[in-house]
Amino acid sequence: MNMFRFLGDMTHLFSVLVLLLKIHTIKSCAGISLKTQELYAIVFATRYLDLFTDYISLYNTVMKLVYLGSSLSIVWYMRRHKLVRRSYDKDQDTFRHHFLILPCLILALLINEKFTFMEVMWAFSLYLEAVAILPQLVLLQRTRNIDNLTGQYVFLLGAYRSFYILNWIYRYFTEVHYVHWITWISGLVQTLLYGDFFYYYFHSWKNNEKLQLPA
């Protein structure tokens, strides 16, 4: 495993853990989109179906379980915890995320590495991950609130995307048969969407003003 991949995994892990720890500690999820968090939970659940069929390494298995557990915990806190769920911006978090799931499923049925249940679910998880940040973007735009989304969370997710792209480039040039078009293209789309988020975050931070996304 190369250093880019490892750093990508670690920053991804910390982004989820920082969010979970923050919700757990301050008993608030203001500014966090439940829709995005639910989409991430679906992404992990559908991608890691291979936990039951393929063993890669102890590292992979443990990381998959931690990602699944922490993202499900975030959803649990936001839906069920009596204090946390009171702080949820329900009226603002109106992005209809079901309309993202269906197109991703159709795309996965059409474009996949092999037409089997596992492969379709795997492709679906990648397409869904690419667009899962959208409800969070819409919520930010509505509330114009960056105080509650910590700088760390934004920074860690951005670092995760960047390291994974460096990892793909590195592996493409150092390994034989390493080609994953579906992963690369959906990963690139995700990074571009995220870059947009990043740009406006830093812009508003630099000018010391509240976040203004273009309408």
Partner: peptide, 10 residues
């Protein structure tokens, strides 16, 4: 025959 790369990333 095309060789399939294992899905070893997260």
């Amino acid at each position: 025959k095309e060789q399939k790369h294992p899905k070893d990333e997260l």
